[in-house]
Amino acid sequence: MSSSTLTRPVAAALDVAPEDYRRRAGLDVAARPGRFRLAVGRLARGSVAVVAFAALWEVAPRLGLVDRVFLPPLSVALGALADLVANGQLAVHLQASLTRALIGLSIAISAAIPLGAAIGRSPAVARLLNPVLELFRNTAALALLPVFVLVLGIGETSKIALVVYACFFPVLLSTITGVRTVDPLLLKSARSLGLHPLQLFTKVTLPAAVPTIFTGVRMAGAASILVLVAAEMVGARAGLGYLVTAAQQNFAIPDMYAGILTIALVGLAINAVLLLAERRLSRWRPSA
């Protein structure tokens, strides 16, 4: 049975023409090639800069514009990356870094969102905590790395704590902003329906603040990798930062660039996952 036969009863029940219903429901096959071409065009335009950068990286060392000993062609770095994947070294370092980053990011989000919501809703809490928060917010995470190492040791605890510190403030500040900038008319309408304060926060304030909160969460996701890589370069036996540093010290330059490429890909992957989570949690928003 064809899709047009199936849609006629539904269209009749809605009192619309079958063609209009099919177009609104996304069933119009004739419109799909146009949408596909549009998506391909957007992808192609967005890839121009990446392709140009990759071509420059490949060609410049081969033409002698840079010393290929210190900057090998992209194909050489990709070959080293493939070798690290094949011998299992990359999996070990990637697992170590992702475990530390995800644990630290999760702890930071779990602590920052409730605290940010409390500060955003209560002026008294904001007046109490703002001075100390401003003090630590303006202190770079890497500047405190020696302190974390001295207090917590050179093991996993200090690295995870540093990630928590670096991720905490972006999420905290975005949560405060999101809670404070919820549309007052939306809150007034919810109160008129008889919602008590907890329902008002969980069903209205927090969902409305999700887009702003996720801006900070995505910043924290990027910070978790950057800060962790720097920490792993100082004291670690596994991780992407350790891979880059060890390769540089052993003059395995292609492996060093392979590690750098992996760090970039991991950052892109984390950002893509957070974007997907934001879209799922913001399904109530009208699409552009």
Rank of each mutant, 00 (worst) to 15 (best):
I119M: 15
I109V: 15
F148M: 10
L193I: 14
D183G: 06
A141H: 03
V179L: 08
G153Q: 06
P146K: 02
K188G: 03
P146T: 05
L186V: 14
V125C: 05
A190F: 09
C167W: 09
F148I: 00
G116I: 04
A143E: 00
R127Q: 12
F169H: 08
V171L: 11
L185P: 01
G178Y: 05
I107H: 06
L198E: 03
S106M: 05
Y165C: 11
I119R: 06
L142R: 00
A117L: 13
D183Q: 07
P170Y: 13
T177D: 15
G194D: 10
R137I: 11
N138S: 13
T181K: 14
A108K: 07
A118F: 12
F168G: 03
V149W: 00
F169N: 06
F169M: 01
V182Y: 01
L193C: 12
G155C: 04
P184R: 08
S158M: 06
I160V: 15
P184M: 05
K188M: 06
H196Y: 11
L105K: 09
A141P: 07
C167Y: 05
L172W: 10
S122Q: 03
G153C: 01
S189H: 13
L144G: 02
R137Y: 15
Q199M: 07
S110G: 15
R127S: 13
S110M: 09
L133I: 15
N130G: 01
Q199I: 06
L115V: 14
I113S: 01
V147Y: 00
N138A: 04
L150E: 00
I154Y: 10
L142E: 04
A143H: 02
S174K: 08
E156Q: 13
A166K: 08
P146G: 04
I109N: 03
V179R: 07
G178V: 05
L135S: 04
T177A: 15
S110P: 03
P131C: 01
V125W: 10
L128F: 12
R137D: 08
P184Q: 09
I160H: 10
P170H: 11
S192K: 06
L186M: 12
T177F: 14
L129E: 02
G153P: 04
V179T: 13
L152H: 09
G120W: 12
T175N: 06
S189Q: 12
L133R: 02
V151R: 00
L129C: 01
V164M: 11
